[in-house]
Structure formats: C-alpha cells, structure tokens
C-alpha cells in the first residue's frame, strides 16, 4: 500500500521541497541565536531504517540504558496519534530523538536540548504499524536508548 513504499520520484520532490526550506533558513527566518547544531538534519529524516537514520544523525550507535525512561502505550488507540514521552536521569543532555522503526522513514523527531532545559519531551507521533519506538538521549557525547514495542491496530498512514 501507500505506506511502505515511497516512489522514487516522490523522494525527489521531497528533496526539492527540503532545499527550499534550507534556503529559507539561510536567510535567517529562524533567529541566529539558536544552538550550534540548529541545522535541519534533512539526510537523517530521509533514511528508511532506524539504524541508518541514527548513523546519519549522530555518526555513531546507541547503547540501551535503563536511565532512559520511554513512556508509550501498549496498544495505540489510533496510529495517527500516539502519545510518546521520554525522560532521563542522565546529565549533560544535548539532544533527544524519537524513531519509529517500521515507518517509511524511521526518524520522527530530533530535539535539541540546550543547557538549562530539562531532558524530557512529550509528543504525539504517527505509526504505520506495530513496531518498536526508540528514544535516544545524547548525554556527554554518548548515545543511550530505550525501546518499546507499540501495537498498532489502526494504522496512522490513512489512505
């Protein structure tokens, strides 16, 4: 179905749209005081699997840690709106990301956590089908992850 296989031409369209947005950034619509790593990670968002997305985003791999607390439902009431949150006891956190392993593009969100911001984020994500949700916390330059399977009975892809 429409969910699993993005066509090649569509990817080109996306790429085109992405560069428009980046041009926009260059003109300074987003305040220049943003953190150093404020560039939209276009490439990471375009990867299919979670491993490739993590590699593109961080250039390294994450280790599972019980210090990363991932809060996600057992069964999503609807794949279109799945409330997912993460919190951590880790210190010196600089970023938090969420990946949905079986989505067409695994990376869902990448949050930059400046100093003074609490390392905890709640958001609502789309899930195409039952699969793992992965949260990655970047702490003192290292990556720590937590993974949870969320069952999806009504997929969030529509169509």
């Amino acid at each position: 179905m429409t969910c699993g296989s993005p066509s090649f031409s569509r990817r080109l369209v996306l790429q085109g749209a992405g560069s428009v947005a980046l041009v926009g950034l260059g003109f300074g619509t987003v305040p220049a005081v943003a953190a150093a790593n404020d560039k939209y990670p276009e490439d990471a968002f375009r990867q299919k699997g979670d491993a490739d997305a993590i590699k593109a985003l961080y250039g390294k791999t994450a280790e599972a840690s019980d210090k990363v607390k991932l809060d996600a439902p057992e069964i999503a009431e609807n794949g279109a709106v799945v409330p997912i949150a993460v919190a951590t006891a880790l210190t010196a956190v600089t970023s938090i990301s969420f990946l949905v392993s079986e989505n067409p593009n695994a990376l869902a969100a990448f949050y930059v956590i400046p100093e003074g911001t609490v390392p905890a984020v709640a958001n609502r994500l789309k899930m195409a089908k039952t699969c793992n949700v992965i949260a990655i916390v970047e702490s003192a330059g290292k990556l720590y992850s937590a993974t949870k399977e969320v069952k999806v009975t009504v997929g969030g892809c529509g169509g």
Binding site: P73, E74, I75, A76, E77, V81, V82, P83, A85, A122, R124
Partner: peptide
Amino acid sequence: EDMRKQWEEKEQFPP
C-alpha cells in the same frame, strides 16, 4: 486503562 492514559495525555492539549 491503557486507552485512558493516552486520552489523559491528549486532554492536556486536546485536538
């Protein structure tokens, strides 16, 4: 219960 939790989360800023 599981659905209720998701709903309460959504009600924090309802759709």
